[in-house]
C-alpha cells in the first residue's frame, strides 16, 4: 500500500469514529434499559447545531460540547415523556424525533451557515505525545476522543460491575419484575434516555466543532442510523460497540485513503467496504456464542405501565 502513512491513518481513524462511537454508546445504554430510541440522528444533528451555536457564541468549544449534551438530552426528554409517561409507540416516536430534530436544527442553524467554528486546538498530552509513532496516533487528539473511550470503560464498568448497572439491565430485561422489586422503571428509563441523548449530542457536536468543522444543515448525513445499526450488530455490549464504531470509521477512512493513493481496487467495493466489513466482523463475533449473551434485552421496545 504505497503512500499511505499508517500513523496518520490511525490518527484520522480515531477522529472519524468518535461521533459514531459516542452516539452508539449512548443508544446502547438506552436499549439496555429496554427502550428503542430511533431518534439518534435527530439528537445528533440537534447536538451539532447546539454545540456549534454556543461554541461560536462563547468562543469556547468546551461550552459548546456542554450545550450540545444538554440540548440533545432535553430533546430526548421529548421522546422520554411521549414514550414513558404518555406510553406512545417507541418506533413512531423515535422516527418523529429524528424528523423533528432535523427540522429544528435547520431552523436554529439558519444564521450559522458559512460561519467558522471556534478554533479547538488538539490536546497534546505532555511527554507522551512526543513518543515516536505512538505519540501522534494515541496522544495528540481532541479531548473528546479520549473522553469517548473513557466513557466506553465507564459504561462497561457500570453495566457489568455495579448495582446501578444491574438494575438498569433488570429494567431492560423484565420491567415487570424490576417494578415488582420496587425499582422506579420509568425514572430509570428516563435517565437512560437522557444519557443517550447527551451522548448523541456530543457525537453531533464533535462533527460540527472538530471533524468538519462548520455548521451545514443535514451534516450528520446518516451517522445516527449507522450508530443504531452498530448497537444491534455489537449485540448490546460496550466493547463491541467500540470495535464496531472504530471498524466502521476506520474502513471509511481507509477506503478514502486507498482511493487517494491510487490503490487498484474497484471503487465500488471500496465504497461499500465499511458497511460490509463492520457487519461481517460483528456478526461473526456474536455468532460465537449464540446463547443469551447475543440476544437483545428482552423487554426492548415494550411499553411499561405499572398497572399491567
Amino acid at each position: 500500500m504505497g503512500g499511505i502513512d499508517p500513523i496518520l491513518l490511525l490518527a484520522s481513524l480515531m477522529v472519524a469514529s468518535t461521533p459514531i462511537l459516542l452516539a452508539a454508546l449512548g443508544e446502547m445504554v438506552v436499549e439496555r434499559a429496554g427502550v428503542l430510541n430511533l431518534g439518534v440522528e435527530g439528537m445528533m444533528i440537534f447536538g451539532a447545531i447546539c454545540g456549534f451555536a454556543v461554541g461560536v457564541g462563547t468562543g469556547s468549544p468546551s461550552l459548546g460540547f456542554l450545550a450540545a449534551a444538554l440540548g440533545a438530552a432535553a430533546l430526548s426528554m421529548l421522546f422520554g415523556v411521549l414514550t414513558q409517561i404518555l406510553l406512545s409507540n417507541q418506533v413512531a416516536s423515535g422516527l418523529a424525533l429524528t424528523l423533528f430534530g432535523l427540522g429544528l436544527s435547520s431552523l436554529v442553524g439558519q444564521s450559522y451557515s458559512g460561519i467558522k467554528a471556534p478554533p479547538s486546538l488538539d490536546f497534546d498530552i505532555p511527554l507522551l505525545s512526543d513518543i515516536p509513532v505512538l505519540g501522534p496516533i494515541l496522544f495528540q487528539h481532541h479531548p473528546m476522543v479520549y473522553l469517548s473511550i473513557l466513557l466506553v470503560i465507564g459504561v462497561w464498568v457500570l453495566l457489568r460491575h455495579t448495582r446501578a448497572g444491574l438494575i438498569l439491565r433488570a429494567v431492560g430485561e423484565s420491567h415487570d419484575a424490576a417494578h415488582a422489586l420496587g425499582y422506579k422503571v420509568v425514572a430509570i428509563r428516563l435517565a437512560a434516555i437522557a444519557f443517550g441523548g447527551a451522548l448523541a449530542g456530543l457525537g453531533g457536536a464533535f462533527i460540527s466543532l472538530v471533524r468538519v468543522p462548520q455548521w451545514t444543515e443535514g451534516m450528520t448525513a446518516g451517522a445516527g442510523w449507522i450508530a443504531l445499526a452498530i448497537v444491534v450488530f455489537a449485540s448490546w455490549r460496550p466493547w463491541r460497540v467500540l470495535i464496531g464504531a472504530y471498524l466502521f470509521g476506520g474502513v471509511s477512512v481507509l477506503q478514502l485513503n486507498l482511493q487517494a493513493a491510487g490503490f487498484k481496487v474497484p471503487v465500488q467495493y471500496l465504497a461499500m467496504s465499511p458497511y460490509l466489513i463492520t457487519i461481517l466482523v460483528l456478526v461473526l463475533m456474536s455468532a460465537r456464542r449464540r446463547s443469551a449473551t447475543a440476544q437483545a434485552p428482552a423487554d426492548l421496545g415494550k411499553t411499561f405501565h405499572a398497572s399491567s
Binding site: 496518520l8 484520522s12 472519524a16 443535514g218 450528520t220 477512512v253 487517494a260 493513493a261
Partner: peptide, 27 residues
C-alpha cells in the same frame, strides 16, 4: 492527480475525510 469518488453530492463529514485523506497523501 489523485481522484477520490465520494459517491455523494453532500455529506460534509465524508467530504472532510476525503480532503484530509488527500492532504495526508501530500496533495
Amino acid at each position: 492527480f489523485s481522484v477520490i469518488w465520494a459517491f455523494t453530492w453532500f455529506d460534509p463529514a465524508k467530504e472532510a475525510d476525503a480532503a484530509t485523506a488527500l492532504i495526508e497523501q501530500g496533495c
